[in-house]
Design a binder for these strands. Structure first.
Lengths: 244, 244
DNA sequence: ACATTCGGCTTGTATATACAAGTGGTGCGA
DNA sequence: TCGCACCACTTGTATATACAAGCCGAATGT
């Protein structure tokens, strides 16, 4: 039937994946020059415009930066991607001129119970990926992140290097996000959270539950827990005056 | 010499601006179909690929959505900030089928100190209006609202009847809001706040600092303090991944 | 009456080409 | 030596073309 199904993925996607891989395994370190459009076109036996598309989209994604006349370079893993509301925590920290680091607590597969299955829009009892990370700013914990990921949409999540890319970056690459749903609460931490975040006695947390969607469904569900003393959420938005 | 330098901005940018303008002034309402690539190419006397670029980039920016075989449509960007959408608390409560009431603690004039003057964009030592209210849902306090108002933009604020209209409604009437700036924090209440909100021992608060703008400047600055047990902030956003 | 096919419209991918424009080096001339 | 012109290489914009692939309604056949 579909002859094109042999060509599983588009050529510009292959080039993107190739470049991402080189960046991930540090063959091409930060700030290094990546091959020019013409060089990639020759290497992949495609036209310059196809290679160009791969570079342009990775530039939009914040993986690369381009400069007319000079070339294309691997972004210093902060760059300016900073999407509006969904900010990358590592970006935010680096933007403040502070040092970002991450501690991986747990990465594993789990079986979805009914509630989680509904949240992710998948079948109950199917496997989901789970990660538990602590994000640190100058060595101080600023976010405890528990995240469930839809394996259908991000099959390589478990094997990713979280010290190179934040979960947010990985998910953006795998499935472009179209929407997000948030619940924001003030909570008192339990003992485990308190010790993970090195909280003072009687210190509340700002907890964000976030569900992100792509066109293919729910990508992931995350609980982001922040010490109130080290985090506040801010932003400026245009006001919609809808009246339902 | 360079004919192209007359063309200050690129053609695909012009097309983008044209489309954005139509969306802004609602000539093309939400979910309506926008001209096809070929139609735009003809209208702007350019190649299909140039029109295509404009559409693609607006799609990436979340202004449009595209669907192979069907066409390109104006995205529903209504949910661009429902979490931080300026909702009317009395509407929200009534929407839940509960009884809304308000308790007026204080309404007065104050002299702005330097910090407040900067916040409101007015001269220091000038007068500002201040109100302090408690909003109740079925008799239980759900929000303590401290609000400073720019008297130049809302001259009749002090004499308003807050049992009839919420501050939000009064401000919207006086000066249409165009933008809002938020800071969200988890805090522990002091004794006064705790007694006003009838908080349990050791209960944190979700505190929203909100500055609202109209085209003429800052309208007001508010601190909205909610008991965590009786409030959570939620909403669904569309995610824009545009680069500035 | 119903299902199937088909054609027209749409977006998606890919190519070849041309010129514009920014960067940096090399070499030439004053 | 200094400045300048020039050139090679790079990314940016624009065009023309081709075919693939998804959607939908209209025509067709049973």
């Amino acid at each position: 039937m579909k002859i094109a199904s042999i060509m599983a993925i588009a050529k510009f996607e292959q080039i993107k994946q190739f470049i991402c891989h080189q960046v991930e395994i540090s063959t091409w370190p930060e700030n290094s020059k990546v091959p020019s459009e013409n060089a990639l076109a020759q290497q992949f036996d495609c036209s310059r415009m196809t290679a160009r598309r791969a570079l342009t989209e990775l530039c939009d994604a914040g993986i690369l930066v381009r400069s007319q006349g000079r070339g294309t370079f691997v972004a210093t893993l902060k760059s300016q991607s900073s999407a509006l509301e969904i900010k990358n925590i590592s970006d935010e920290i680096r933007q403040r001129g502070h040092q970002y680091s991450v501690e991986v607590l747990l990465i594993e597969q789990r079986i979805a119970d009914d509630e989680l299955a509904i949240t992710l829009g998948i079948d109950a009892q199917s496997t989901v990926y789970f990660s538990s990370l602590i994000h640190l700013e100058n060595g101080q914990p600023v976010q405890l992140e528990h995240r469930y990921v839809n394996p259908a949409l991000v099959p390589n999540y478990l094997t990713s290097d979280f010290t190179k890319f934040t979960p947010h970056e990985l998910l953006s690459l795998a499935a472009p996000l179209t929407e997000a749903e948030h619940i924001i609460e003030a909570t008192m931490p339990d003992n485990q959270v308190s010790s993970y975040l090195q909280l003072a006695e009687n210190e509340p947390c700002l907890e964000i539950k976030r569900r992100t969607f792509s066109s293919n469904g729910v990508v992931s569900f995350a609980r982001l827990i922040h010490p109130s003393s080290r985090f506040r959420l801010g932003g400026r938005f245009s006001v919609t005056t809808k009246k339902p």
